[in-house]
Amino acid sequence: MKTNNTNTTIQSVALIILRLLIGWHILFEGISKLLSPGWSSAEFLKESKWILEGFSRWVLSNQGVLNAIDLLNTWGLIAIGVGLILGLFTRTAAISGALLLFIYYLSNPPLIGLEYSIPTEGNYLVVSKTLIESVALLVIAVFPTSRGFGLDMFVSRIFSAMKLFKVKVDFRE
């Protein structure tokens, strides 16, 4: 992949603001779930329509899987949020976030003919805020900002140092 990391300052600042805001939002979504004792994705999944409907039903019919999904959701959101704010493993966080949001979108897409019993907070046709946030994370993933403004700078230094001193790292560990 060809890297062109010469954003102008204003470009970088805009991207960093975007990264911080999305990180903030996702982190709070995760923390809110953590703080509400009885939270479960069950009610969201019950509403699932279109291509993920079958999958959602399967999750709902299995308490163990549902619990696992709930746990992964909560901690996944928190990890993604922290990653985006700190600029730590930013690309991984951004791509995971984009995927997760895209799954949320696919579960309840505002397509013509699909109707939901929970009212939405806005008016959507095909495109929803969830989809936009998902794509915004893709933008963050492809325009790196964290090497300058994020802990990834240290991460990349550590990796390059390892490479320099031919330190072998076995990731399968």
Binding site: I85, F149, R157
Partner: peptide, 26 residues
């Protein structure tokens, strides 16, 4: 800004820690 010239300057370190105060505000 260039990746080719990555040197640990004081400013660079401060910039890299930019997310920490945001987390604090959060």
């Amino acid at each position: 800004h260039s990746e080719k010239k990555q040197v640990l300057t004081r400013r660079g370190v401060l910039k890299s820690l930019a997310g920490i105060p945001v987390l604090g505000v959060f």
